[in-house]
Design a protein around this nucleic acid. Structure first.
Lengths: 158, 158
DNA sequence: AGTAATCTTGACTAGAAAGTACAGATTAGG
DNA sequence: CCTAATCTGTACTTTCTAGTCAAGATTACT
């Protein structure tokens, strides 16, 4: 159970776009440099986010990416599903469920219900979090960081 | 964020061993056939579980695998870590934290704290669940299933 | 000792995910 | 209409995980 690179990068890109504001547009080279990810890869991820309907792209000169909706309407659970699929895609149980789809191998089911519990726990966090929440968290951190300068130019969080 | 095949198979194997009881031994061919997974792959997964200290192996004729501890002492969170690693292994933030290990790129941190929240939610489920819990769940399901025979030989759960 | 059943190990192959490259399409502005 | 900046789509390469295979080591039973 690991976070995929797509999920990590993709969400970072969204946060940065949200941070740029409603009309703030960011190009692939800009995003690439800011995140330290290659332009080709950044392009690929932003493309996925566009297909998911989270961002919109403007082509040509003066083009770039913008959030497709207000940050408060972008639910992180949906973003994660777009970038990395569902946690539990039961390839195993389904093959034993027959036409009813109900798994008859009992030993499978107890495992399956555990996965379901995990999925519920994860969804409980992610489906209640919007991009706006992340941006606000960001603001808090920034103001906090600003008040506590650390040694040799670093900012300490504790 | 997906469950790996290792996690899925490995946990199934553990449940089946637990189901076989404290002294119940299962060989690789038996497990292989019961789970519908190739013997070579089953062997590999059981090996991982042995290295993790969850099962013990007896070699030679009459050999096989047995639980290394009572089912109630086997915490699923540990099993999952053994089979699939931690959810959030921060490759990204750490590279921006310098010697203190604290990430100074604010845009990273809000994402990071989200991952942490997800990890906590998952751990809350998995670290409170032992193999014994899964086996009991199993028992309940079996007795339930037995009471409701479905059409053409299937057992319906609802 | 011999034999058959069993786990162990390391190397190999296949497949999926991540990352790269490049030619093509679109747009703003001169 | 031309150019430069920008996204788009497809195909390629690399890297990591999953799965396979064969030779070796161990044990119980005779």
């Amino acid at each position: 159970m690991k976070l995929s690179a797509n999920e990590e990068y993709g969400l970072r890109c969204l946060v940065r776009l949200g941070y740029a504001g409603e009309n703030g547009s960011i190009t692939i080279p800009e995003m690439s440099q800011a995140e330290g990810v290659s332009a080709a890869n950044t392009a690929k991820i932003l493309r996925a986010l566009r297909k998911g309907g989270f961002v919109k792209a403007a082509r040509g000169k003066e083009g770039g990416y913008t959030l497709a909706r207000p940050a408060g309407d972008i639910v992180i659970a949906e973003v994660m599903e777009c970038l990395g699929g569902r946690l539990f895609e039961s390839s195993f149980c389904d093959s034993h469920g027959g036409r009813t789809g109900i798994c008859t191998r009992s030993v499978d089911c107890s495992v399956r219900s555990l996965w379901r519990a995990v999925q519920v726990a994860v969804d409980h966090v992610l489906s209640k979090t919007t991009l706006r929440d992340l941006l606000q968290n960001e603001e808090e951190m920034n103001s906090w960081v600003r008040t506590i300068p650390g040694p040799n130019g670093m900012r300490l969080l504790q």
